[in-house]
Design a protein around this nucleic acid. Structure first.
Lengths: 142, 142
DNA sequence: ACAACGTGGTTATCACACGAGCAACGGAAT
DNA sequence: ATTCCGTTGCTCGTGTGATAACCACGTTGT
């Protein structure tokens, strides 16, 4: 019952990319240096983000990574699902593969509610908002 | 990001115990038969519930298990925490062991909010309520 | 053209921890 | 002695976190 490191790093990465000037291409090693991830692991983490259309990549000299969408169109849920797939709190919540206790089990409904609440929170915040808040937080520290 | 089978079975077990006449002692094998769990695994699952003061056990002839509290004093969160320990969505949410990005990281706040929402849902429902609902659901099926 | 170089992409592999489950033995109550 | 539960240790499979080798592509200099 805990998110993976991959998801954590993926979020950091996207936030970092959003903090760069728009359309600026960022080197992998720059992401690694600033976000405390190893290049090999980051490579693995970035692929799902690219496949999900959140990040674009560019090969060759001068290549690197950049956001594929506006930061205010990327939610935390998008990143989470890119890395971990559909969010589900219990196996009985997978669509189609309903357990046979489904029709009467009252706990099922509770998992559903808890899961929806989580999804709601993760959808509420987009990356633009998070960047704005982080800036605010850093200002208030000094 | 999914609850363990142990937690699932533990909840089933407590709900089942709550459905029995008050203070009735239930045999392990009867729990197994009705809840689709093997005795060996159930043994493992019951221990945390006993240590958490949710279930009582009685050895010897005529022994078995029964609830240690009123069903309306047992929440889903109690059972969850008995089996899985403190609920946490990310490592950075463990008290005391704060990550160094804590003071400015805006994602941290989001995890906190999501986690609180989940805890809120799991606290809202006690076992008595779930038993009542299940009865209702079964009635409506026919 | 084309070769060299600098990037990311793909795939295989590894150690380790954890989840899920099993079984044997020990201990208490009757 | 019997019938229960309690404790412990084990297996086995899967997923996480991480590394590395090699491949494919773009750019740039000649």
């Amino acid at each position: 019952m805990v998110i993976t490191r991959a998801t954590e790093y993926a979020i950091r990465t996207v936030v970092f990319l959003a903090q760069q000037p728009k359309d600026e291409i960022v080197l992998k090693k720059d992401i690694c240096r600033t976000q405390d991830v190893t290049p090999a692991f980051l490579t693995k983490i970035l692929q799902p983000l690219i496949k999900a259309g959140i990040v674009n990549s560019q090969r060759g000299v001068g290549g690197g990574f950049l956001l594929a969408k506006d930061p205010d169109e990327i939610t935390l849920l998008d990143i989470f699902q890119a890395e971990e797939g559909q969010l589900k709190l219990n196996y009985c919540l997978i669509d189609g593969d309903a357990c046979h206790r489904d029709s009467y089990c009252s706990v099922h409904e509770v998992w559903h509610e808890a899961q929806n609440k989580m999804i709601q929170v993760l959808t509420k915040y987009n990356i633009a908002e998070l960047v704005r808040r982080e800036k605010e937080n850093l200002k208030n520290r000094n």
